[in-house]
């Protein structure tokens, strides 16, 4: 591969954000343009450019457009003159924008984690698993994860670069206050787009109180999706992973879904019972159970 596509390939492999423009059509009056249809220019986040659309003025106008597309992570069609003039349509240019892969950080190296890693990888996330217990956080247990880190979650978060942003997700599956609380205090200081924590409704009440006691504001605590996932009656680690990822997608697209956080009643239902029987099949809302 040569030229701009080779540069694009390089950026994708290094997980670097970039945008590139391709001339896809020319009007007859632009037939004398210095370069043919298919010509490209690529711009990276640092402003550096490679490629040529046929005139210095057009290249400069394209670079400005591309940086904007990169920041908005949104491409599209652009009509302009042969020197990038607005309100002309001599050239039709298509802009592609690529951001770095979104990150998912999973705290807690438990069975639910392995299933969540798999679903998150399917969705294109760069997935990190972090747990302070070296016996559990091993690459052998999570072969699909991009990295497995043995560290205290809050310490790992403090050292994380770049900082978490709106397209990133954090899932706290540790089920252990001494890891959960410091991790959540730290996560709620970031701009992560999705923050979820596993645990029963009772665990969650206690968790909210502990976070308040740590000085986390109510509006910040309200960002927390807990119990984690949407209410689809998920039970196994794999089903739970789907319920969590469905909630992450819905959060990103601002689509209303039946999140467990916004409902009441049992998280796990016994199969075969109708809604009217819910009171009879309420599972023990006990921290020792693996209730979400």
């Amino acid at each position: 591969m040569q030229g701009v596509l080779a540069a694009a390939y390089d950026c994708l492999r290094r997980d670097e954000a970039f945008a590139f423009a391709t001339i896809i059509a020319m009007r007859d009056n632009a037939a004398a343009h210095a370069v043919p249809v298919g010509s490209k220019i690529l711009v990276k986040a640092d402003g550096s450019a490679i490629g040529d659309l046929g005139s210095p003025e057009l290249n400069a106008a394209a670079a400005t457009r591309l940086l904007h597309a990169l920041n908005e992570s949104r491409g599209g069609l652009w009509h302009c003159g042969v020197d990038g003039e607005a309100q002309r349509d001599d050239l039709t240019i298509y802009i592609d924008a690529f951001t770095r892969r979104p990150r998912m950080i999973i705290f807690g190296a438990v069975d639910f984690t392995r299933a969540l890693v798999r679903v998150a990888k399917t969705l294109g996330y760069h997935v990190s698993v972090c747990d302070a217990r070296g016996a559990f956080a091993t690459a052998e247990r999570f072969p699909e994860a991009d990295d497995v880190i043995v560290d205290w979650p809050h310490r790992f978060l403090r050292g994380l670069t770049p900082r978490l942003g709106p397209s990133d997700a954090v899932c706290v599956l540790t089920h252990d206050e001494k890891f959960d609380i410091p991790a959540l205090v730290e996560v709620l200081r970031t701009d992560a787009g999705y923050i979820g924590a596993m645990g029963s409704r009772r665990t969650n009440e206690k968790r909210r109180a502990r976070l308040e006691a740590e000085g986390v504001g109510a509006d910040q605590i309200d960002r927390l999706m807990a119990p984690i996932g949407i209410d689809i009656g998920a039970r196994s680690p794999e089903e739970t992973a789907i319920a969590i990822c469905a909630e992450i997608i819905a959060t990103r697209s601002a689509t209303p879904v039946p999140s467990l956080r916004d409902s009441s009643g049992p998280i796990h239902r016994v199969a075969g019972h109708e809604d009217g029987d819910l009171t009879q099949c309420r599972v023990e809302d006990d921290d020792s159970s693996n209730a979400r």
Binding site: M1, L5, A8, Y9, L12, T22, L77, Y94, D96
Partner: peptide, 26 residues
């Protein structure tokens, strides 16, 4: 797109001609 470029690179290395199609408007 990364998967696609991995494959394109392999095809080109093997000496094949390759076409790329992209949706530009919907």
């Amino acid at each position: 797109m990364l998967d696609l470029l991995d494959e394109i690179e392999r095809w080109l290395t093997e000496g094949h001609r390759v076409a790329l199609a992209r949706v530009i408007d919907v």
